[in-house]
């Protein structure tokens, strides 16, 4: 029973890995790829580690630490990459929020095949 569950978790994790990593090859914007990478690298890896945790519960402290640090670091890295890669493309000092409405550079610049 536990075996099935743990292999199920690992299978879901691997599915997430493949699904989230394939868009990396295509010509999409960095931010779009970040969304799919957060599926694969954070959620997929977390479910693989949960699968391992079910398999060998005796090592739970290390694996729980791995889970926590995986969630935190990958999320923060996603934020840092999004921040660093996007702020090159816009006015850095925005005085007033009406200066750019949501659609202004959102869809037009990062749309399909947006980056060169």
């Amino acid at each position: 029973m536990i075996d099935i569950l743990s292999y199920g978790c690992m299978g879901i994790g691997l599915l997430f890995w493949f699904w989230g990593t394939f868009p990396l090859v295509g010509k999409r914007s960095v931010l779009f790829k970040l969304h799919s990478l957060s599926v694969s690298d954070t959620l997929g890896s977390m479910s693989i580690v949960v699968g391992l945790l079910l398999k060998i519960p005796s090592e739970w402290p290390l694996l729980v630490l791995a889970l926590i640090s995986l969630a935190i670091w990958n999320t923060v890295l996603g934020y840092v990459l999004a921040y660093c890669s996007s702020s090159g493309n816009e006015i850095s000092e925005v005085g007033d929020r009406s200066e750019y409405s949501a659609g202004e550079y959102g869809v037009s610049e990062y749309g399909t095949g947006g980056y060169e």
Binding site: W17, T21, L24, V30, K33, L34, L37, S40, D41, S45, L70, N74, L77, L81, C84, S85, Y115
Partner: peptide, 14 residues
């Protein structure tokens, strides 16, 4: 370079 960074981040986790 940013696409490369994404790829490297993915490699590191995997």
């Amino acid at each position: 370079v940013w696409q490369k960074m994404l790829a490297f981040a993915s490699i590191a986790t995997k």
